[in-house]
Design a protein around this nucleic acid. Structure first.
Lengths: 129, 129
DNA sequence: TTCTTCATGCGACAACTGTAGCACGTACGC
DNA sequence: GCGTACGTGCTACAGTTGTCGCATGAAGAA
């Protein structure tokens, strides 16, 4: 079972990225909690949040696990793995350049730890040849 | 009539970007020509190419003009404008950073002229506040 | 026990995308 | 004049995404 192959990861669209960000930040959450966290940025109905998450489970982006009778959702792909997918795509198609320089841009922000940046870099490197 | 407002530009998806690249590079082309240029990268049927282009006309990304009885398609948005849309999106959502540093990455490649890079930069700047 | 509140599983429907095919008309080679 | 080759306008149909609502069942409040 290949686990970190960037190229075979499913696409991540805008909505999905929003949800993933919440899960990456807060770990496993109940649907209701995810919905609340989304609250400001998003005006979805609760059922919409659930549908999107449920579909992400189907795509393998999110994992659903029963915890004392309550369903918790957790990101199934790491943040570096998800970002790698997006960065590679952007570098290839828009920049038409190697993704490496893009990675260094993350260093300016605070979204990623140094550790995650290294991991991101590694993932992009590894899928290169 | 606002002409270069990045934020109101329609989304540009992967297929559309492919077509736009051809048109940016070669100017106005007949559907058949576009299809041929796409040939290597793309295994669409000719009718698919036409459908996608026609839809792009509807979205205002491409313009169709009759030339001596033949329809020619031409990009309606400039390359810097299109790229601005994509860069802004990526910077906002993935990098969670200002788009300016991304622009400087274009300097490394040869896809854009210095002039276009300036224009791209200007467009991103102007839509900022 | 009965009422109220949620979580959860399902179903729905419209818009957008991927991917074509068909029919008609016109221009051109024979 | 006729058949052949395209350009063009339409139509189609399945899969994905956006966006919800409904019904059922379990758990807690009264």
């Amino acid at each position: 079972m290949k686990k970190t192959n960037v190229t075979t990861l499913p696409e991540i669209n805008a909505s999905e990225l929003d949800l993933l960000k919440v899960l990456w930040r807060e770990g496993a959450l109940a649907a209701r909690e995810v919905h609340t966290r989304l609250g400001e940025r998003n005006s979805w109905a609760y059922s919409t949040t659930r549908t999107v998450m449920e579909r992400m489970v189907g795509k393998g982006l999110v994992e659903k696990k029963l915890f004392h009778g309550l369903n918790l959702y957790e990101a199934k792909i790491s943040r570096p793995a998800g970002l790698a997918r997006l960065v590679r795509n952007f570098a290839d198609r828009v920049l038409e350049l190697d993704p490496a320089p893009v990675v260094s841009l993350f260093a300016e922000g605070e979204a990623l730890s140094a550790e995650e940046i290294r991991e991101l870099s590694r993932l992009l490197e590894e899928a290169k040849p």
